[in-house]
């Protein structure tokens, strides 16, 4: 009898502790993808510029994020300019990621390549999974510029952490940064579609 009681107690304890683990520590700042400013536009082709890297720990973070954003647009059925091509054009015109984009560059993209929207941004935080409670974390600022008007069509902010997707205990937690980026950029593209950026819906 005694042993069975101890087992029952242990079981209860595990349940209680498990409950603690499943409740998020910081309920307030759960990750989000937000679009702040939006203007209706129907770009049938998008150019993704290399993202500016503001992370000191990973020198390639900008390119990694730009690649996944590129992938998200492709998966949504949008025609995207090849990244090597964008890079060549930038080198020819002497400007760097997240700088003011020259008028002539926008004109070139619009007239010669049929691009309607230029996507640029910067990576503010990029932390891979560190084990224990340090889940992967990303903070990305993203903006879309219309090649027709040269104005910003939308600006957005992606803030996510691996444990934003937690179901219970460690179940559902995202540990791979690649997956976290994939999930959050997918969310971004869906929100853009909702916001009325038309050509993303067309196929």
């Amino acid at each position: 009898m005694k042993t069975s009681k101890i087992f029952a107690l242990l079981f209860c304890l595990i349940f209680i502790l498990g409950g603690c683990a499943s409740s998020p520590v910081n309920g307030g700042d759960k990750g989000y993808v937000k679009i702040f400013r939006k203007e209706k536009i129907d770009p049938c082709k998008v150019a993704v510029m290399p993202f500016k890297n503001e992370v000191k720990t990973d020198a390639n973070a900008g390119e990694k994020v730009a690649n996944i954003v590129y992938s998200a647009f492709v998966s949504a059925g949008v025609d995207v300019v090849l990244p090597g091509e964008v890079n060549n054009l930038m080198v020819g015109r002497h400007f760097f990621p997240y700088q003011n984009i020259p008028d002539t560059f926008l004109l070139f993209l619009r007239n010669n390549m049929g691009v309607g929207l230029v996507v640029a941004g910067r990576v503010i935080e990029y932390k891979p999974y560190g084990g224990g409670s340090r889940y992967p974390e990303i903070k990305i600022w993203i903006e879309g510029i219309s090649t027709k008007t040269g104005r910003r069509v939308f600006t957005g902010y992606i803030v996510h952490r691996g444990d934003d997707y937690r179901k219970i205990l460690e179940f559902g937690v995202v540990k791979s940064v690649a997956r976290l980026l994939f999930v959050s950029t997918d969310e971004l593209v869906k929100k853009l579609q909702e916001a009325g950026i038309k050509c993303l819906e067309k196929r």
Binding site: Y70, V74, D79, L82, Y129, K175, S176, V177, A178
Partner: peptide, 29 residues
């Protein structure tokens, strides 16, 4: 994108581009 031996993580993005149009029509993480 990522390889971590200790934490058992691996990430890769792939694209398929049509030739000679140069249009990327498929992608997956």
């Amino acid at each position: 994108i990522e390889v971590d031996k200790k934490k058992h993580l691996y990430g890769l993005v792939l694209f398929a581009t049509s030739i000679p149009e140069g249009k990327t029509f498929w992608s997956k993480v």
